[in-house]
Amino acid sequence: MISLWGDMNRRGQVVVALALLLLLVAPLGATRYVLSVLTLILYFVYVGQAWNLMMGYAGQLSLGHALYVGLGGYVSAALWVHFGIGPWLGVFPAVAVAAAFGAAIGWLGFRFGIEGVYFALLTIAFAEFTRIGFDHIGFVGGAGGLFIPYEEQRLGQWWNLRGSQLFFYYLAFALAAAAVLLTALLARSRLGYQWIAIREDETAARALGIDVFRAKLKAVLISSSMTAIGGVFYAFYYNSLFPAQLFDMGRSIELILGPIVGGTGTVFGPVVGAFILTPLGEILISVTEHLGINAPGAKAVFFGLTLMTIIYLVPTGVWPWLSRKLGLARRRP
């Protein structure tokens, strides 16, 4: 931990400390709306970081991460609705189920040498398969959705994830901070170095004694478990779950835009990406409303154009470019 801090230069330390402080005191001055946007940003930092571990570090492109959000959310919500098992307990089976799916995908993909775009398609196939499956599972409401009831007497039971906007904001903050810390630690660990070696050159990694299959499987397991916890948060924050909303490919894409725009394979890329894209979406909504354009899709068109522009200008992500510009990174020839 100390070496983590010491690895940053003075300016980097100041920026990180300021950002943390700002986020901690933000609720003092923020309206309910701003707080909800910040919560969303932090949620995307968290799930983006989970995806970043698998893609940015281990180099395995998953386009089906909504699968783990959905499984985590549905398992914890169903346990609560049907059996009264609270999310602090329900999170364990939720993570276990998501990790089992992750293990199945990883095992199939890595054992049979399915790589790159093919692996990405395998992940999409699993997510879509599960989405359609959930549409037909009556126990969790099928396509009609599963709802966590609003109960007056449970308000403020934070241990059951029943709380105010403020509570969810700090929860999201804690999750995001933990994810960033975990990424930073992993990136400096033996496992992290093995992942990077695999990402850079699998053959060379193998020649250096790295058990590629195991290392990749660990990446999927960690990433899917983390994402499932994000799903638990999602379920109890929004209180309603629809297969078409949770498992949809659009959700998987939404989740990975932040880390890619921010910069994959970096600790702060997913943070920067989420802080760019989520507010951008919100700003576009209010701008289009302001201009009197209320056509559905107007916001999305601008969003798509911005995405193309960013990736065209800084293909490796905003954060590497930004940290160079601001002199936050240690210089390397």
Binding site: R190, Y193, Q194, I196, A197, A205, L208, G209, I210
Partner: peptide, 9 residues
């Protein structure tokens, strides 16, 4: 870092 990866074996 290239060499560190080897040394971590």
């Amino acid at each position: 870092d290239n060499v560190v990866i080897g040394a971590l074996l």
